[in-house]
């Protein structure tokens, strides 16, 4: 796997890598993809209709309004909050 591909994946993954880290990741990913490539020799196609037999969609809960968790609890793990989650300015 080349550095361009790893950079692209890093961007998709919202991860920053230094140049050295990118090189290491490219080497690791190359040997990992070598194992993953073994499945290409199997000639089969996924049948999505055969899956999800055990989903219980007919047992969905009634749509009843209930009290939600208190705001204080929801915000207890946010590093920056002001009765809401605080993020950097996104609109000029």
């Amino acid at each position: 796997m080349d550095l361009d591909m790893v950079s692209y994946l890093a961007k998709l993954s919202k991860l920053n890598f230094t140049e050295d880290e990118l090189k290491k990741a490219a080497a690791d990913m190359t040997s990992i993809i070598d194992i993953m490539d073994t499945i290409k020799e199997v000639d089969i196609v996924y049948n999505p209709l055969a899956d999800n037999k055990n989903m219980y969609l007919k047992d969905l809960r009634e749509d009843i309004a209930k009290d939600s968790m208190e705001t204080e609890k929801i915000l207890q793990n946010a590093k920056h909050s002001d009765n809401c989650f605080v993020v950097p300015k996104v609109v000029e």
Partner: peptide, 29 residues
């Protein structure tokens, strides 16, 4: 980080059928 990269590779456009799709077929097999 390595797993996130691998997962996004398997799901990314142009690779999805060859990797994720084939892996799901193998799951059924």
């Amino acid at each position: 980080k390595r797993r996130i990269l691998l997962g996004n590779y398997a799901l990314s456009s142009g690779y999805y059928d060859a990797y994720y799709g084939k892996a799901m077929a193998l799951k059924q097999k």
